[in-house]
Amino acid sequence: MAQVAQVLKQFRVQPNSTSLEEARKRTFEFFKLACRSIPSIMEIYTLEDVVHPSQLRASVLAEIRKNAHITNPKVIDLLLFKAMEELKNVVDHSKQRHHIIGQYVVGRQGLEDLAPTDPGTSDYLKKFYNSNYF
């Protein structure tokens, strides 16, 4: 973990990628770095009981895949820079637990309705459970 933090600390803005190939390689490196930092993130934010590391990995991956259609190396560099910044903030504990949970744990599928939906209940009962004023 300390390693990851070290790498991040020494992170400098790199010269622009010369080709798409290079940008692609940098993306993989970033993903690996993120994956390596996940255990420490789990620990910093005590996420054991809300999420599994693989879910976090999947959500990082999904963030990357969202931009899969981009082919301009310059744009990819910029996005990578922003991603690295975000990762740094996360690892440095510059965020709070609910940020992580909100953005990467439940943020994916949105808050699901935890209340059981009983299809048989009437309109009255639904309103009753909601509030006294209807």
Binding site: T121, S122, Y124, L125, F128, Y129, N132
Partner: peptide, 27 residues
């Protein structure tokens, strides 16, 4: 306004009747 999560008396019994399966005819 009401205190906390309270409900009016008749509303509670009306809701209970429905949960108990013998819905009262007014709401």
């Amino acid at each position: 306004p009401i205190v906390g999560d309270a409900r009016d008396d008749w509303k509670i019994i009306r809701a209970l009747s429905e949960v108990a399966g013998i819905q009262l005819p007014y709401d």
